[in-house]
Simulated scan of single mutants.
Amino acid sequence: MRTRLVLGLTAAALALAATPASATTAAPPHPAPFGPQRPYEPDVAGPANLDEGEATVVRDAGGKHGVEITFDTRRFTASGEKPAAPREFVFLFDDSVSFNVLAFPTCGRAVLADQGPAACPPGSKVGAGRAEFYGGGAAEVAVYNTTFAGGLRGVLITIPATGTILDNTLEPVWGPYRQNYTWGLHEIIQPDGVPPQDRGVTSSFVVSFGATWHGRSFVESHERAGRPLDLGVWGHYVTGQVTLTEGRTARP
């Protein structure tokens, strides 16, 4: 059974996107502020991004709790100009969702960077997707279970065609987010030598989390079938803009 929801901008994000940076409207707080930190980088001038998307939940081939969750996100501007580049994203998962990171092999960042996906152990791939770039072009996305320094767990979201590898640490959410979520995958896009306003950006990014290995599911939901699941994506851009998209869909 396939269920789908439309993720819509929350009132706070709509207000932030539609009003000047000097407005007093509070931006949605960071869902996972106590994990790895992105190096400081001053904000730059740029357009207000508009975010929208869909989330899809399907049952996988593992146990009765196994699911695959897909985020299909899109960003654009009212004027049609290039959207501002991202700094961070946090994928937010319903409080019924858990990740069996210890039951799956892992692939290290160095292995991916030096040898490519073919060198990753069988069973370490735990997701897939597709990126479409502003201005044209597209590439496949792959997701690998991994470990980080200090014992943190999470995934690497990769675009092999471009050599992009994005750390996503699995972190408990904080504050008001705990009402609907327990875990977030916190993705940091590290600054590089390219000026923030000139960095490339995706206009569409589809990524799924879910796989099976020896009968185990990487993602599980212990909610009953037909009950609503909360899903969302928090975003932070080089202009300082913060957005939050959230929605609900029925557990298949």
Rank of each mutant, 00 (worst) to 15 (best):
G150S: 10
T158V: 13
T164H: 03
I159F: 03
T158C: 14
W183R: 01
A142V: 13
T162I: 08
L170T: 08
V141L: 05
V141Q: 04
D167W: 09
T162N: 04
V173W: 04
P172T: 10
T164Q: 07
Y181S: 05
L185S: 05
G175M: 04
V141I: 15
T146F: 02
D167P: 15
N168M: 13
G150E: 08
N180W: 15
T146W: 02
Y181I: 10
A161W: 01
T158Q: 06
T169Q: 10
P160N: 00
N180K: 14
P172V: 07
I165R: 02
A149V: 13
E140M: 07
F148D: 01
R178D: 13
T147W: 00
D167I: 05
A142W: 04
L185N: 05
I157Q: 10
R178T: 15
T182S: 11
N168Y: 13
T164G: 00
T164M: 07
N145C: 08
V155S: 00
I157S: 01
P176I: 14
L166Y: 09
V173Q: 03
T158G: 06
T182P: 03
N145Q: 08
V173I: 09
I157P: 00
A149C: 00
N145F: 01
G150F: 12
I165Q: 03
A142I: 06
L185T: 09
L185Q: 08
A149S: 11
W174C: 09
N145T: 08
T147N: 07
A142K: 06
I159R: 00
Y177G: 11
V173L: 03
V155K: 01
A149P: 06
T164L: 08
